[in-house]
Design a protein around this nucleic acid. Structure first.
Lengths: 342, 342
DNA sequence: TTGAAAGCGCTAACAG
DNA sequence: CTGTTAGCGCTTTCAA
C-alpha cells in the first residue's frame, strides 16, 4: 500500500472562505463582502459567490468573525429562577427582541446567589457576552455596579434607580399600595403580607407600600402579620399561610408578593380548613397565566412581564449601540386584576 | 493644546496576554500555560504571572481562545416552550451539568416551529455552539437527522429511537398505560384522552398506551373522547374539558398528557359545574411542582424532569468528548403519583 | 469594483 | 522549564 504519489494527489481545496473564493474565482475579501451584504459588489460577481456558497454548503465560522469584530452577539440573562412563570415570561420578551436584532441569549440561573452572579458577570469581561440583563436582587446588583459601572448591563424588574444603571420595572410601592387599598375597600382590617427575602429591593418597596396604605387608612400594622420567605415556591406560600393562621388573631386577608406564593397560600389555607375568599381573602402579584385558572381565580397585581423583558433588551441594545449616550430608567404600568380570591 | 511630544508619550503597554507577559517578564506562551493550568511551569514563574494577572485585572479574551481552540463551549438547547414548568425543570438539569463541565447554555425557544428550529440548528454549523439538545417534536428532529446525522446533537424527552440519534426519555407507552389502568381500577369505563398535537411522537405513544390499556380491559375507546390540542396552555385544557362535557355521553375520567393541560381541565370542569373527582376524575402527566398545590391535588405520572435534562447533557458531552463512540439511548423510570383528582 | 495583506488575541508546536 | 513563531478564519483598511 503505497502512499499516493505526488502526481495523484488532489490539491486540497482550502476550507472556509478561501475555498469559496477559489471556487468563485474571486478574492476572500469579495466573498466576505457579499456574505456581509456590502453593496459595493458587482451583481455578476455577487452571483458567482452566492453560487459557490450554495454548492459548497459553506457556513461562516462565527468564532472567527467574532474575534475579528470583537463581539459575541450574545446577551447574558441572569435570572434568580427560570422555573418561576413570572421570570419565564420576562425571558421570552428578552429573547424575542434579542433575536430580532441578531443576538442570542445566554441564560443563567443564578438562584439569587451573589457568588454565582458575580462569576456569570465575568463573562462580560471575558468577552463571551456583549451585554447583560440582570433580574437578580438589588444587593447583588449594587456589588456589580460598584465594581463596574463601565460594563454594559441593565437591570430588569429588580432595580435601584440610584445606582445609575439603566433599568426597567414597575412602581412597586404604588402597586403594593393598590392591592392593600383594594383589600381595605373590601372591608378587611387584618391584612397580612407575605413577602420575598428582604434583599430584594422590590420586597422593601412593596412592604413600604403595604405599610403606608395601612397607615393612611388609620390602621396599625401588626408585625405578626408580616412574613418574609426565602423562596417563591408554592410550598413557601403554603407554610407561611399555615403559620399565619395558627396565630391567636389571624388575618382576614393575605397579600402575597408573588402569584406563586399566593397559589401556595391558597393551598395552605385549604389544608388548614379555611375557605378563600370567605374565611380569608388572598391577593397575589404578577398575574401569571395560571392565576386565572386556579380555584378560586386569583385577584392580583398584573405586571407587563413580556414588555418588561422586551424593554430590558431594547435598553441594553441601545446601550451597546451607543455606549456614551445616557439610557434612561423606565417604569411600566401595573394594574389590579380583580378575580375571586379577594 | 499640543499633542504630547514623542518624549512624553508612554510606551503603550500591550493589551491582553502580551501585557501580562511583559509585566511578568516572561513570554506569552508561559502566561498562556499558567492561565490554562499546565503543569510544566516553575512555581516561581507561575507566581510572577499570577501576580501580574491580578494587578492588571487581566481577563482572557474567550473570543480569541474559542477561535484558536475551535470550540465555543456553548450548548444549544432547543425547547418548544420555556414557559412550561416541565421544560423549565428539564432546562435546569441541562444547565447544571453543562456548568459543571465548563459549558454555558444557549437557550432557544422554538415554539415547536420547524423553521425556527432549523435556523437555530444552523448555529452548530456556524460553530456558535458545540452541540445541541433538542426537545422538539420528532417530525422536526427527523428532518434534522436526515440533514445531518453528522452534527453533535441529542434528543431529550421527545425522541425516535429509530433515527439513530442519542436520546433520553421515558417509556411513554407504558406510562400512559399505567395511568389508564389506574383509572380503570378505580372503576372508570368512559375515559377521555386529551393529547398534544400529533406531531409529537410522545403523543402518539401515549395514545397507543391509552388505546391498548382500554382494549386489554375489553373496553372500546370512543373516538369522541379523544381530543388533540395544539398547545399545552391551561386554556387549551379548559376548553377541551368543556367540549368533552358537552357531549351526550360525557366521560367520567379525563387523562391529559400534561399537568398544565390537566390543571386547565380542572378549571374548565369547574366552570361547567362539574366537581373533581366526584363527577369526573382527572389524571395528568409530568408531576410539576404545581400539581400538588392545586385543588384537588393532581394524580399524575411523574417524569424525572431534572434527571432527564442532566442525562441529555451528559450524553451530549460524551458525544462531544468522543465523537466516534456510540452513545446509547436511555430510558428513565416514570411513576404514578396518586393524589386526589383521580 | 476588486485584491493583497495585516491583524483580532490566543494556543500549541517546536526548539532550545 | 521557557521562548519563538505560526497560524485559527475572518473582516477591513489600503491600493490598484
Amino acid at each position: 500500500m503505497d502512499k499516493p504519489s505526488q502526481r495523484d494527489m488532489q490539491a486540497p481545496s482550502p476550507e472556509g472562505i478561501a475555498g469559496v473564493a477559489e471556487q468563485a474565482g474571486v478574492s476572500v475579501a469579495t466573498v466576505s463582502r457579499v456574505l456581509n451584504g456590502h453593496s459595493n459588489v458587482r451583481p455578476a460577481t455577487r452571483d458567482k459567490v452566492l453560487a459557490a456558497v450554495a454548492t459548497s454548503g459553506y457556513r461562516v465560522n462565527e468564532l472567527a468573525r467574532n474575534l475579528r469584530t470583537a463581539e459575541s452577539r450574545l446577551l447574558l440573562t441572569m435570572v434568580p429562577d427560570v422555573g418561576n412563570p413570572f421570570y419565564a415570561e420576562v425571558i421570552r420578551g428578552i429573547d424575542a427582541i434579542a433575536q430580532q436584532h441578531g443576538y442570542f441569549m445566554l441564560l443563567c440561573d443564578t438562584g439569587a446567589d451573589p457568588g454565582r452572579e458575580r462569576s456569570y458577570f465575568d463573562l462580560l469581561r471575558r468577552r463571551r457576552a456583549d451585554g447583560a440583563i440582570c433580574l437578580d436582587p438589588a444587593t447583588v446588583q449594587q456589588a456589580l455596579a460598584e465594581e463596574s459601572n463601565t460594563l454594559p448591563w441593565v437591570a430588569c424588574c429588580e432595580f435601584d434607580s440610584s445606582v445609575g444603571v439603566p433599568y426597567v420595572g414597575i412602581d412597586n410601592y404604588r402597586a403594593a399600595g393598590d392591592a392593600v387599598r383594594y383589600l381595605l375597600a373590601r372591608g378587611h382590617r387584618r391584612i397580612a403580607l407575605i413577602n420575598s427575602d428582604d434583599h430584594y429591593l422590590y420586597a422593601q418597596q412593596r412592604q413600604q407600600g403595604y405599610l403606608d396604605a395601612l397607615r393612611d387608612a388609620g390602621i396599625g400594622a401588626d408585625e405578626r402579620w408580616r412574613l418574609n420567605v426565602n423562596s417563591l415556591d408554592y410550598e413557601a406560600g403554603a407554610s407561611a399561610a399555615a403559620l399565619l393562621m395558627s396565630q391567636p388573631e389571624p388575618p382576614t386577608a393575605i397579600f402575597a408578593v408573588s402569584d406563586t406564593l399566593a397559589i401556595g397560600v391558597i393551598a395552605g389555607l385549604r389544608s388548614v380548613g379555611r375557605r378563600v375568599p370567605d374565611d380569608v381573602a388572598v391577593a397575589g402579584f404578577d398575574d401569571i397565566s395560571l392565576a386565572a385558572q386556579i380555584d378560586p381565580p386569583l385577584t392580583t397585581i398584573a405586571q407587563p412581564m413580556r414588555e418588561l423583558g422586551e424593554t430590558a433588551a431594547r435598553l441594553l441594545l441601545q446601550r451597546l449601540a451607543n455606549p456614551r449616550e445616557n439610557v434612561p430608567g423606565v417604569l411600566l404600568a401595573h394594574r389590579l386584576v380583580v378575580r375571586q380570591s379577594a
